[in-house]
């Protein structure tokens, strides 16, 4: 685990091939932001169906559960308060 993704200002290690969702969960990050409706964004279905875990990955909106980690990947919440 020498490589890292960056969740806001925090560097998080990952296992080769794992999803952003699973690396963030291991780091204790569950709330990934808050939708404009007030709904917390978090992993729910884990397989790309519910759209509940949307984040910004290198500037693009994507599902944290489908996005695969790569070294230096920069991640931000879409909006609202998130776990750090």
């Amino acid at each position: 685990m020498n490589h890292h993704i960056h969740w806001q200002a925090r560097a998080i290690p990952f296992q080769t091939g794992e999803s952003v969702a699973s690396a963030l969960q291991r780091a204790g990050i569950h709330q990934l932001g808050r939708a404009p409706t007030g709904q917390a964004l978090a992993v729910f279905c884990g397989i790309g169906q519910c759209q509940g875990c949307l984040i910004m990955a290198d500037g693009q909106v994507t599902e944290a559960c489908l996005q695969i980690c790569r070294d230096g990947l920069t991640l931000q919440p879409l909006d609202g308060d998130a776990d750090v």
Binding site: A42, C45, G46, I47, C65
Partner: peptide, 15 residues
């Protein structure tokens, strides 16, 4: 059921 940390059993299984 919308709280972070609440997910489907399948999400746990795929992990």
């Amino acid at each position: 059921w919308t709280l972070p940390g609440v997910m489907t059993a399948g999400a746990i299984q795929s992990r």
